[in-house]
């Protein structure tokens, strides 16, 4: 990072201030509110006032709430699989479309479509495609001789169906970020590599990838955070079922908060959620930065 430059403190602060102040102004109150509520029991819908319960909510979450652990397991597996797949696909696409390929503008735009559509709409659209009786996917597979597959009704299969939809929807995010990064790469390095007779794969592995790593870390991090918050697809396609096989952490929190209006417990869950995501992001930052 920067060599020590004679930059005034005021300028430094001045650059950072707008973001920092804004986030503080808008962020502090919700944080305090939810943190204090997480030590209370408050069934808000029935007009009773919050009762202080200390750490009981957190105790319940960790030791007496199988539903939490179930959604935790599902969410972690989900995040891992979708982020890895999206990163690989996104890298491949960005790599290909960074080349001079005919119609590449067309592809660049087309591949952004899934990300641009509201997730709610996407969830509903996929629900239509996957409809077991009348959905086109089932009919196409049927015409190929593969008879009914229980995508939305088999507890072992449905999580993967959601992942496929997620990959469909969010690969463009990786693609876009990586394409932007590819384009800031200094070209002369490649020319040098070319001269040295490096293969395409070698050039990618030893030149491009290390250069891309910082942005990859950032993209993975941002994508992982959003994947953790998986909500709309569950909400729109499966409702968490069959059984509880696709109940994500954030969907569970939503259920507790906005359907049971058990706001104290929902706030505790949110803080645990925040803890998990912070932990994972720290882990990612350390681990991936080290591998340069």
């Amino acid at each position: 990072m920067g060599k020590a430059q004679p930059i005034g403190k005021g300028v430094k602060i001045g650059f950072l201030a707008p973001s920092l102040l804004y986030l503080m102004a808008m962020g502090i109150f919700p944080l305090v509110w939810s943190l204090s509520l997480s030590f209370h029991r408050w069934k808000a819908a029935t007009a009773s006032s919050p009762i202080f319960v200390g750490l009981k909510n957190f105790y319940t979450i960790f030791f007496a709430d199988p539903r939490f652990w179930n959604s935790f397991r599902f969410t972690v597996i989900y995040v891992f699989i979708v982020v890895v797949s999206e990163l690989s696909l996104g890298l491949l696409l960005a790599y290909i479309l960074n080349e001079k390929i005919r119609f590449r503008n067309f592809f660049r735009v087309v591949f952004l479509f899934p990300m641009a559509a509201p997730p709610i709409g996407i969830a509903f659209m996929w629900r239509m495609l996957l409809n077991p009786d009348a959905g086109i996917v089932g009919k196409i597979m049927g015409s190929m001789g593969i008879n009914f597959v229980r995508w939305l009704t088999d507890a072992k299969l449905t999580p993967f169906v959601l992942m496929v939809v997620d990959i469909w929807e969010w690969t463009p995010f990786m693609f876009l970020g990586l394409l932007a990064a590819f384009q800031t790469l200094p070209v002369e390095l490649y020319d040098a590599a070319q001269v040295d007779g490096a293969s395409r794969f070698q050039a990618f592995r030893f030149i491009t990838f290390p250069l891309l790593l910082p942005i990859i870390v950032t993209l993975v991090l941002l994508r992982a955070i959003d994947a953790f918050k998986l909500f709309e697809l569950v909400f729109g396609i499966t409702g968490g079922g069959p059984g509880t096989s696709t109940e994500s952490l954030s969907y569970y929190t939503y259920t507790v908060g906005f359907q049971y209006f058990d706001l104290g417990y929902a706030c505790s869950l949110s803080w645990v959620f925040l803890g998990i995501v912070l932990f994972v992001s720290q882990f990612l930052l350390r681990r991936l930065r080290k591998e340069v």
């Binding site: 986030l23 808008m26 962020g27 939810s34 929190t253 706030c267 925040l274 992001s281």
Partner: peptide, 27 residues
């Protein structure tokens, strides 16, 4: 540290919207 500031900023995005929806409503 720059890193800590950045992580703090990012943590604003990690919070599930459910926990901030009602405080936002109140604000």
């Amino acid at each position: 540290k720059n890193r800590d500031i950045a992580v703090w900023i990012l943590s604003n995005r990690m919070f599930p919207p459910i926990a901030v929806a009602i405080p936002f409503f109140l604000i």
